[in-house]
Amino acid sequence: MTEQDVTRLLAKIPLLKAEIGKVIVGQQPVLEEVLVALLAGGHALLEGVPGLAKTLLVRTLAQATDLPFRRIQFTPDLMPTDILGTEILEEDHGTGHRSFKFNPGPIFASLVLADEINRTPPKTQAALLEAMQEGHVTYAGQEHALPQPFFLLATQNPIEQSGTYPLPEAQLDRFLLYVRIGYPTEAEELAVLTGTTGTARPEVQPILSGDDVRQLQLLTRQVSISEELVQQVNRLVRATRPATSQVKFIQDYGRWGAGPRAGQALVLCAKARALLQGRFAATQEDVRALAPAVLRHRILLNFNAEAEGLTTDDAVAALLRDVSI
Results as ranks from 00 to 15, higher is better:
Tyr178Thr: 08
Tyr178Gln: 13
Val179Pro: 08
Pro184Ser: 04
Pro184Ala: 10
Glu186Lys: 06
Glu189Met: 12
Ala191Ile: 03
Gly195Cys: 04
Thr196Pro: 00
Thr197Asp: 05
Gly198Cys: 08
Thr199Ser: 06
Ala200His: 15
Glu203Asp: 11
Val204Lys: 10
Pro206Met: 10
Pro206Thr: 13
Ile207Trp: 14
Ile207Val: 15
Ile207Arg: 12
Ile207Phe: 07
Ile207Leu: 06
Ile207Met: 13
Gly210Tyr: 07
Asp211Asn: 11
Asp212Ile: 04
Gln215Pro: 06
Gln215Ala: 15
Gln222Phe: 00
Gln222Ser: 15
Ser224Lys: 12
Ile225Val: 15
Ser226Val: 03
Glu227Tyr: 00
Glu227His: 05
Val230His: 04
Gln231Ala: 15
Gln231His: 11
Gln231Gly: 12
Gln231Pro: 01
Val233Trp: 00
Asn234Phe: 00
Asn234Thr: 15
Asn234Glu: 13
Arg238Val: 06
Arg238Glu: 03
Ala239His: 04
Thr240Asn: 09
Thr240Phe: 10
Pro242Ile: 12
Ala243Gly: 09
Thr244Lys: 09
Thr244Gln: 15
Gln246Ile: 03
Gln246His: 10
Val247His: 08
Val247Asp: 10
Phe249Asp: 03
Ile250Val: 15
Asp252Lys: 15
Asp252Tyr: 07
Gly254Glu: 08
Gly254Pro: 09
Trp256Ile: 03
Gly259Lys: 04
Gly259Leu: 01
Gly259Arg: 03
Arg261Phe: 05
Ala262Phe: 09
Gly263Ser: 15
Gln264Phe: 11
Gln264Cys: 01
Leu266His: 10
Leu268Phe: 11
Cys269Ala: 15
Cys269Thr: 13
Arg273Leu: 15
Arg273Met: 10
Ala274Cys: 12
Ala274Pro: 12
Leu275Ser: 02
Gln277Gly: 13
Gln277Thr: 01
Gly278Trp: 12
Arg279Ser: 05
Arg279Met: 02
Ala281Gly: 06
Ala281Tyr: 02
Thr283Leu: 07
Thr283Cys: 08
Thr283Ile: 04
Gln284His: 02
Gln284Trp: 03
Gln284Tyr: 03
Glu285Phe: 08
Asp286Pro: 06
Asp286Lys: 02
Val287His: 14
Val287Thr: 13
Arg288Ile: 08
Arg288Leu: 09
Ala291His: 08
Ala291Arg: 01
Ala291Met: 12
Ala291Gly: 05
Arg296Phe: 08
His297Asn: 04
